[in-house]
Design a protein around this nucleic acid. Sequence first.
DNA 1: GGGGGAAGGATTC
DNA 2: TCACGGAATCCTTCCCCC
Length: 944
Amino acid sequence: MEPNASNAGSVSADQSVLLSRMALNDNKAGMEGLDRDKINKIILETSKGSRFYENELKKEHQVNQRIEKILQQKAKLTEQQIQNAQIEVEKLSAELERGRNLSRVIVHVDMDAFYAAVEMRDCPELKDKPMAVGSMSMLSTSNYYARRYGVRAAMPGFIAKKLCPNLVIVPLNFAKYRAVSEQVREVFADYDPHFLPMSLDEAYLDITDHLEQRQHWPESMRTYPINEGNSEGDKPSTETEAETDTLSPVLFEDSPTASPTFPVPRGKGEVFGTSPEEAVREMRFRIEQKTSLTASAGIAPNMMLAKVCSDKNKPNGQYRIPPERQAVMDFIQDLPVRKVSGIGKVTEKMLAALGIVSCAQLAQQMAMLSLLFSDTSWHHFIQISLGLGSTHIERDSERKSMSTERTFAEMSDAEEQYSLCRDLCQDLAKDLQKEGLKGKTVTLKLKNVKFEVKTKAFTLQCAVCTEEEIFTAAKDLLKAEIDNVSPQPLRLRLMGVRVSSFVSADDKQPQQKSIVGFLKMGSDTSRSTPAPRVLGILQSEVSGVSESSVSALKQQSADTRGPSVVVETSRPFSKWGNESEGAREPQQQTFFQRALTKRLQQQQQQQQQQHQSEQEHHSVSMDEPCSTTEPHTSGFMRPANAESLQTCGESSSKTNTASRANESTHMDTQSSTKTNMEQCFTCPVCFKEIKTTDLTAFNQHLDECLKGSSALNDNRTSTDIDQDLDVHGKYLHIPDPMEQLDQPGSSHSTATTNPSSESSSSSAALKTLSNGMLKKTNGMPTKFEFENNKNASLTPFLKCSKDSKDESHSLPPNEPHVLLKDSGSNALPQNSTHSDEVGIKTVNAEKVSTLTCPVCNQAQDTDDLTLFNHHVDMCLNQEVLLELRESVPPVSLGKARDSEKALSARGKSKRRGSSPNPPSKKSKAISSRHTIDKFFKGNSSQKF
DNA sequence: GGGGGAAGGATTC
DNA sequence: TCACGGAATCCTTCCCCC
C-alpha cells in the first residue's frame, strides 16, 4: 500500500495533508515493513518550512481541489447516467475482449538497483554499507541496505542522510553505467534483436520468435558455463570450466530468488530449458555472468503486465503470467492500481477518493469513471482492469523532443540568466546536431526560487538546430519573463531549453525558394502546397518585440514548408503579433503574388533559365538544411553580396555580421558589408554601386534617387498616408541585458540580437531611404511627424489590413498598388498603365515588362529578374529595416514596456498558480496588420 | 466545432 | 551547513482561428 493521509499514523494533522506527496513512497522492492511513521516524520520535519515544502503544500491543495470537484461531479450523477454509461462500458469492454491477444511472450527486464549495483560491484567495501548514488540534492537510487532506512531514489541526499547518517553517497558515473548497459543489451539482442530499451537499466523484449526457434535447439545451445563475473560467460558451451557453485556476488540480502536457485553441479554448465521461464532465466543468468549484476524480469502476454510482473519478485527474480485470460484476470484482481505504470500518486489519490484502490474496484466502477474522466483516461482504466496492454513493441518510435535543463543556486541577475540560457542552447544545439535533428518549437522552462515551474514555448516557421537559432528564440522567451516580473528580478533556480516538433528528413531540406521559385509554387494550384508569404517586416517593432525576436524570425523563412519570400520577418511570439500564416489558397494570394505569378508563367522559359542560373551561382545548395551557415536569400540575393544579407537565420552569417558591426560601428549591415570589402555602397533604389565610403555622399545619392519615387505618391491623400503609416509605438527599443552581452568583446556576440551594434552600424542607406521617402512625399510625415502618428507605416506596401476582409484597412481605389501590366493577361486591371501604378508595369512600348519594386515603388528599369530580385531583397532586407526603429527617440521606451505589459495583462492565466500576468499567448498584437502580405491581400481583394 | 498552439501537469526512470 | 534532478512523453485545458 502506498502511503497516504490514511496511514499518516502519528504524524500531525497538518503534516498529514502532505503525506501523499511528501511521505515515503515505499512502492519499491526492499522497502517492505519499514517504520513508515518514523521515516515520514523525519522527512517532513526536514522539509518543513522550506520553499519546496511550501510549493508541495500548494500542489497538494490543488490536487485536493481536483478531488473535491470530481466528488461533486460524482454526487450529481444520476442512476440513469450510470446505467447508460454502463452500457457503453460493456460495449467497449466486449470489443476490447475480442481483440485480446495472448499469443505474444513479452518480457520486461529491469536491472536491480542498477547504478547502486554497479558501484557496489566496483567497490566491494560498499557492499555491506547503506549506500546511494547521486548527490546531496538528489539520489538516483539506493542499495537495499539503505532502503531499510527509507532511503530511496528521488529523495534528496540531505534527507537521506537524516534518515541514515551512515549513508554513503556515491556520485553518478553515467559513462560507466552506459558501458554496463551496453553489455546487458548485447544479451537482450540475442533474445529479441529489436528489443526496446526504456532506459539504461530496463527494456522490453518480445521473445515469441526466439521461443519458437528455441524449441528446436539442442541442449548445447542452451547450456552456459558458469564464470565468475567475466565477460566470457555468455557464450553457450557444453564445456564447463567453472569450479564454483555460486554466481555473481550477492548484492542484496533477502533476495527472493537469489541466483542460483538451483544447485549447479561442479564441472557442468547450466542447462536451460525451452520454456519462456527458462529462456528468461537464462537471459538473467547470462547478464549476471557478464556483468556480475542481477536483473529481474516479468513475463506476460503484454507490456503492461510484463512491467508489473518484473516488480513482483524483485530483486533478482522473475514472474510469469501464463497466456490465459483467467490467469490474467486473477493476477489483476487484487493488484493495486498504483502498481500499474502510468498511475502515479495523483491519479492514485483521485481514484482512492472514489473508493478505488485495486484493479478489481477499477473494473467495478468503470461506468462512473467514464463519466468523470476523459475518454483517454477511462479507456486507459478499462484496459488496465481487463489486464490488457500493448502486445506490439513499438521499436521505431521517433524522438519527439530534446531538452536540457540546469538547476542552480538562486540566480537573479538577468545578464547571468541570458548567459546561462545561451549555454543551454549551446549544449542543446550540440545534442541536436549529433542526432541530426531540427525542431520548430523552442520551449523555455523556468523554475523560480519558489519552485514554481513555468514553460514558455514558441513555434518557429522553420526548424532550427543551431545555438544561435535556438538562443534567438529562447532569449526572447526569457526576456518576456524578465519583463513580466519587472521591476522585480526574476529569481530562478532552474532553467531549461527544449526543442520539439522535429521535422522529418524530407522537411529538413531547405524550403526556401527564390522569388521565382516562390512564384512558381504560388501559382501551383496544389492545395497541399502552402502559399508563399511575405510577412510583416515591422511587426516586431509594432508589437514591442525585441530586436532579437525579429532576428529570430529571419531564420524562419528557409525551412518553412511553403515557399516564402526570404525577407519575411514573422513573429516569434504569436501572442505578440498574431496572424495566420498557414497555407494560403491561390485565391487568397496577394495581388502581388498572383500578378507576378501570371507574369512569370508567361516568362517561364526565362524564369527557368534564371532559376537555374541562380542555383548555380548560389553558395547554398538546396539540399542543405535551413540552418546551414550559408545565406539563403535565394532569388533575391546577388551572390557577391550574399553574406551581407540576412534571411534565414544562419548563425555564422549573423555572427559574421555581428563581428563586422562591432568592428566597424559606422557600417551598415547591408551596404556596409560590401563597403567593407569593396569600398562602395550599393544603392537600394537604383541598385548601382556608389564608389564612396562617405555615408553623407551616399545618402545624398539616395535622396536623389528617391526624388523620383516621390511623384508616385503625390496623389495620395494625407489620410491614406496616415493609414499607411501606422506604426503604433514601433521603433521601440527596450534596453536589454542582452545588449551588453552582445557587446564587442562578448564571446557571444550576435548581430541579430544586438540592438546596440545594429544601432551603431545602422543602415545609413536604408535609413536614408526611409527618410527620403518620408520627406519627399507630399503629405507624408517626416520621421518626426512619424512618431506622433499612431497610424503610420513606412510605405504603402507595409500597410495591410488585419484581414483581407477588413475593408477599413484596404487601400482606396486610387491607392498605389501592385499591378501587373501584361497585355496578354485579361486578369489584369484595365487601368494598369496609370502612372501611379506600382509593382510590375509597362513603362513603355519597347520595354515590355519593366518591374517596379513593391517596397520602394521604384520602377526598375530591367526585365532581369535576378536584378529585380536583388533590388527587392535590398529593399526588404529586414536587418536594414530594423535600423529604422533607431530613428525613434528613446522616449518610446515607456511605450514599449506598456505595450508589452498590456499584452501580458491581457493574457488570462489558464492554470492555477500561474503568474498573475503571463503574456497572453494569443493576444492579438497591435501589429498584425503590418504585413506586406496582408496589404496585398487587402489590395487584391479590392481589385478582384 | 474542430484543429492546433501554448501552458501546465502527471508520470516514469 | 545549505540543500528536493534531468529528460522525455503524454494528457488536459485553455484559447484562438478558420
